[in-house]
Structure formats: C-alpha cells, structure tokens
Nucleic acid binder design. Structure first.
Length: 201
DNA sequence: CCACCGATTGCT
DNA sequence: GCAATCGGTGGT
C-alpha cells in the first residue's frame, strides 16, 4: 500500500475544485484512529463550487454549516445528510472563495476489519463505495468538520496519479439542480466506485 | 416558529 | 420503488 508517499501540502488543495477533484483520484485518504489505521485509495470524486453552482451548499452564500467551504484549502467539510449519513469533502480554493470536493468512493487499503466493525457486511470492494459509506466506515461525525488534512490524524498522501485515459467524467449523482455539470470524476475499471461510470475520455 | 427537503443508503 | 430520519435553511 502507498501510505509511504508524501503527504499532500496546502498548495495541492488550493486550486479550482474541478481541477482538484480530477487530481485527487489515485491519492490515499488515511485516518490514524486510536483503534488503528484506516486508509483507502480515492477512486470517485465530485466538485462543488460556490456562487456559480446551484447544487453547492455554498450557492446562497456563507451559513453556519458551510463556513469551512469559504475558508482555506485542505480542510475537511463534513455535512450531515438525510438524517443519517456524514459525508466528507476536501476544501479547495483560497480563503474567501467557496469550493470543495466530495469524496464519493475509495478502494479499501488498510483497517478493513475496523471498517466492517462499523456495520457494513458487504463485499470488500464496495465497503467505501458511496459518500455515506465512507463516513460510516471511518466513523466520521460533525466533530470532524474543520479538520486540517495537511496536519494531524486525518490526511491525504500522494499515492499515484491517474492518467487521463483512465479517468471518466460524468454528471454528479443525487442532485436536483445543475444536473448537467460534468463535475464527477472516477477511475475507469475500479470495482469500488458507486453506481455506474461511463468509459474513459 | 414552522414546514419543507436533501451532495444517501438499503430493503421490497 | 420507496421508507428511514433529522438538521439546515428560508419564509412567515
């Protein structure tokens, strides 16, 4: 497993969320908990911008919930979804400009038994195939909102970038506005993505 | 204060 | 196809 690759720095995250979402594929999300190490390879992401994106939580400006989306890049934006799921985003852009990338699916790399202990008993490749499943397997909650990915127990390491030929771009999942924005990115051929993915670009 | 609704998931 | 489940958001 590629946990030995360098941790990504602030400058990596401080870009347009659409560019960042594409470049986060192949990177490694890790979380050093008191029970052990959890890690997964990022295989599916979605970009959410600000005032130009009606599907974004930041579309109508800053609120108590979305404040970290307006802060500096490289922080965790965790939101509570449908009364039962916690979904994890990585903030983008710089302070004052809203933007984030939703982590939609990972390939399990480490701590698989700990992930299963959180309640999912499906096949291993699908343990982290959805934003709510990542939140559950990693034990995330609102207390994790605002964590710094560049420092501390929750982080992202470089892993291995994915070449353009293996990246599929498509419409975002589960939204009711701006449904045509091509802001979803996935690694072609991964068995851990959520739903279906079109062929490469 | 109240009513509506959603960046989801899993079961029927 | 749809219920579960509840805080965020916006309007009254």
């Amino acid at each position: 497993m590629n946990l030995t690759t360098p941790r990504l720095r602030r400058s990596f995250f401080a870009r347009d969320p659409v560019i960042l979402a594409r470049d986060l594929l192949g990177r490694i999300l890790f979380y050093r908990t008191t029970d052990g190490l959890l890690a997964g390879r990022i295989v599916e992401t979605e970009a959410y911008t600000g005032a130009a994106d009606p599907a974004s939580h930041a579309f109508r400006g800053r609120t108590a919930r979305n404040t970290v989306m307006f802060g500096p890049a490289g922080y965790a934006y965790v939101y509570f979804s449908y009364g039962m799921h916690y979904c994890l985003n990585v903030t983008a852009e710089r302070r004052g400009t809203a933007g984030a990338v939703l982590l939609r699916a990972l390939e399990p790399l480490a701590g698989i038994d700990l992930m299963r202990a959180q309640g999912d008993h499906g096949p291993e490749p699908k343990l982290l195939s959805g934003p709510g499943k990542i939140g559950r397997a990693f034990g995330l909650g609102l207390r994790d909102n605002g964590r710094d990915f560049t420092r501390g127990p929750l982080g992202i390491s470089a892993g291995t970038a994915i070449p353009d030929g293996q990246v599929a771009v498509s419409r975002r999942v589960g939204i009711s506005r701006a449904v045509d924005f091509p802001y979803r990115f996935a690694v072609v051929g991964s068995r851990s993505v959520s739903g279906s993915v079109p062929s490469a670009r």
